[in-house]
Design a protein around this nucleic acid. Structure first.
Lengths: 87, 87
DNA sequence: CTGCATTTGTGCGTATGTATG
DNA sequence: ACATACATACGCACAAATGCA
């Protein structure tokens, strides 16, 4: 389903829209635990956004406990089954 | 914890409060001439303010002749001993 | 070991929109 | 109208670490 384009007019920030896609891929198993999610550059190319925005999306995912970033290697899906979230 | 927190209720703008700290560090030699002052990101993290506010603080410091900014490098302490201020 | 591509880290420049006092 | 402040978003440049041929 490619009905998913970034909507710059939406009230939902672009970085949240991108994060939502990654989350969906995680939830649907497209991105299993330990799998590397698309790099910032990938997001820039795929969605035509600024790197800043891609970084924001990744930061958000990290914030939500979905992934963890390894410097210079990438950002990987975390195992949330036994997550210890504080919300 | 820090005795020096930003006071959002103060009549003194947040950016001026932050600038005042940097100035104090300069005056006290904590930040010697040519030393890079905390980046905008640092200020954002340390004081929990928006980048816009951090930028305002730096702009103010520049305005007062305390520092000079080198694009993509950082903002550095100026030698004011022989300052040529226009005031 | 060397060179190169990839990827994240860092830092500033700029602009827009929103909200408050 | 204006200053202050926050959030978002695009752009540019360079550094540093990693991985692999």
């Amino acid at each position: 389903m490619a009905e998913s384009e970034i909507d710059h007019e939406s009230a939902t920030p672009v970085y949240r829209q991108i994060a939502a896609r990654v989350i969906a891929d995680i939830e649907h198993g497209v991105l299993p635990v330990d799998r590397r999610i698309p790099s910032e550059s990938d997001m820039v190319k795929r969605y035509g956004v600024a790197r800043d925005t891609a970084r924001n999306a990744v930061a958000y995912l990290r914030d939500q406990g979905y992934v963890h970033t390894v410097p210079h290697r990438g950002t990987f899906v975390l195992d949330r089954s036994k997550a210890t979230e504080a919300e």
